[in-house]
């Protein structure tokens, strides 16, 4: 039973993976415009260069040859040169930016999760009280606040008017650091505004999910039984939480795609040197090698995360809870 479930999931992941790769292959190529003439237009290159570039990038080959080459390069890791940043390699570009994105998204995911779940637990535990009302109501109000709008206002108030935090970039440009601490402090200093803005605009859905799932579980028989046995609140809480946290955790995994998409916005507003902006640029400039590699890695990450979420569900499935309880 369990193994069959696993096989089905794996098969599904594989199909999803190939579908994404195919979409990413077909879409940019099906739409008018080729990367060489985009660059030529942008940088006023002579028209003879366009021909050379098209030949060099093998864009004049029949589509099936391109498709085969596409899969070959992706799976062998020979990602080649970026079109826009030629002759810099895709690997170089991705590795230069990936750490920043991981730092930004990692930190904000943690703060978003902790804030969201924390408030959700409080609201759920004190359900139908004033605290609950205030928390859920403000979560709903904040739920639809556009991230970039809040970020812009933060930049204006805390960066421009009060000058507490830098407005953009990940490091102070041109700064020479005397030691590691200065470097770390500078990184943190630049990280503060984007992370706070992200936390404030993204925590709400976690709060609502956690609250609802906690309320659900607190009304279940086994919790009522524990209560009847006279166990202290803390113990009951511990039991309830283990189950109530499942939905927000899976939500975190499933939302990864949205988070990475959000990185495009974050990095645009804060000029953060991460991979989100690189992806956006590669879409606009049809920088195929970068686009392909970025989406390759993105889909792998998302599929692995989804698989983890599935496994988590399997391990903590309610049926297991009941048999043990």
């Amino acid at each position: 039973m369990v193994t069959r479930f696993l096989y089905v999931r794996l098969l599904r992941s594989l199909i999803v993976f190939l579908t994404i790769l195919l979409i990413v292959f077909i879409l940019p190529r099906a739409m008018p415009g080729n990367p060489a003439s985009i660059l030529a237009n942008e940088y006023q290159l002579p028209s003879s260069t366009v021909k050379v570039l098209i030949e060099m990038w093998k864009l004049d080959r029949p589509w099936h040859e391109q498709l085969i080459a596409y899969f070959q390069t992706l799976f062998t890791g020979q990602w080649g040169f970026s079109y826009k940043y030629y002759p810099r390699t895709v690997y170089e570009l991705v590795m230069e930016r990936l750490p920043w994105t991981l730092l930004l998204l990692g930190t904000s995911s943690v703060t978003v999760f902790l804030t969201g779940v924390g408030l959700g637990v409080i609201a759920g535990w004190r359900r139908n009280t004033k605290v609950d009302s205030i928390i859920t109501f403000s979560a709903v109000l904040i739920y639809a606040v556009p991230y970039y709008w809040l970020a812009l206002l933060f930049q204006y108030v805390f960066g421009y008017l009060l000058k507490w935090f830098p407005i953009t970039q990940a490091l102070t440009p041109g700064m020479i650091y005397r030691n590691v601490f200065e470097y770390v402090a500078d990184v943190l200093w630049h990280l503060t505004l984007p992370v706070i803005a992200m936390t404030l605009t993204a925590f709400a859905s976690y709060t609502l999910v956690t609250r609802n799932s906690l309320v659900d579980i607190l009304s279940e028989d086994f919790i009522l039984a524990l209560k009847a046995m006279g166990l202290p609140d803390r113990t009951i809480m511990r039991h309830a939480l283990r189950n109530a946290l499942l939905p927000p955790v899976t939500m975190l995994a499933i939302r990864l795609g949205t988070i990475v998409g959000g990185a495009v916005l974050t990095e645009t507003v804060f000029s953060y040197p991460g991979i989100g902006y690189l992806i956006y640029e590669s879409i606009l400039y049809k920088d195929y090698p970068v686009l392909n590699a970025a989406f390759f890695m993105l889909s792998i990450t998302i599929i692995v995360a989804n698989l983890c979420a599935d496994l988590l569900y399997m391990l903590l499935d309610p049926r297991i809870r009941y048999t043990r309880g």
């Binding site: 440009p173 700064m175 020479i176 601490f181 200065e182 770390v184 402090a185 943190l188 200093w189």
Partner: peptide, 28 residues
Amino acid sequence: AYLIGFAGVASAAPEEQVLKVGIPGEID
């Protein structure tokens, strides 16, 4: 740590004659 960091950032020593030119963009 944060405060120390700010202090460090805020009081970065002035350097000798360095001309700094800012450019938007990337190096290819």
